[in-house]
Amino acid sequence: MLEARNISLNVAGFSLLQDISLRVAPGVVTAVIGANGAGKTSLLRLLTGEQKPSGGVVTFNGSPLVDWQPEQLARMMAVLPQSSRLDFPFTAREVVMLGRTPHATGLARDAQIVDAALHAVDGGYLDKRFYTHMSGGEKQRVQLARVLAQIWEPVTEGPRILMLDEPTSAFDLAHQQLTLSIMRSLAEQGVGVLVVIHDLNLAARCADQLLVLSCGRIAASGAPSDVLTSKMIREVFHVDATIAVNPVTGTPLVIA
């Protein structure tokens, strides 16, 4: 389990994050929402160990993140950044194969996992195509397949964590839905999922737990139906919205 206790981040005299505590528990999907510049990506950087918090501590399985060997951590925790630039002509298969870098499961098993991960993101047809020739949505799907391949199987060392920073930003409706169902099925396998997402309705549909960031602080957290209120949306996003109930899924539906 990944746990942040009272973490804060100051950069060049600005306080970007203050006093944030949260847990990414196995089998739970946590969605982080908030306005632009609220500190969502900074929070992700602290949780992944990319940046050290100015105060507080992030622990994984009880030990501070800094005490983990990078390779060991990489076998359990995969991170998909907002955008990745890759200017070299790898094929989709080769990019996804890079997700197996921290593992020593052998080429045959890795090849099976790469196939399965590509198919999971509806990217089987991309297999031999060059990454540099793909559309924005195809590239994002290949990157998603790469992080899926990284945590495809349970490992004996500990629970798996997946962190995604706006994974659906370049996706059409079908692939947005696909991403949601991938996150849900990973959670069912016991993976702890943390996703930064802009679309409140997508967040409401996929998350067990919502975390609302506003100016570097947690403005609200809890189950989507408790957190998504017109009052919260007015205070955090400065937008008047009506909250209805999705007739199919029963989750909150934000109409703005």
Partner: peptide, 13 residues
Amino acid sequence: LLGESEARHLGIA
């Protein structure tokens, strides 16, 4: 080639 932070998340020092 994926990026420095991507490489870090793949376990590269």
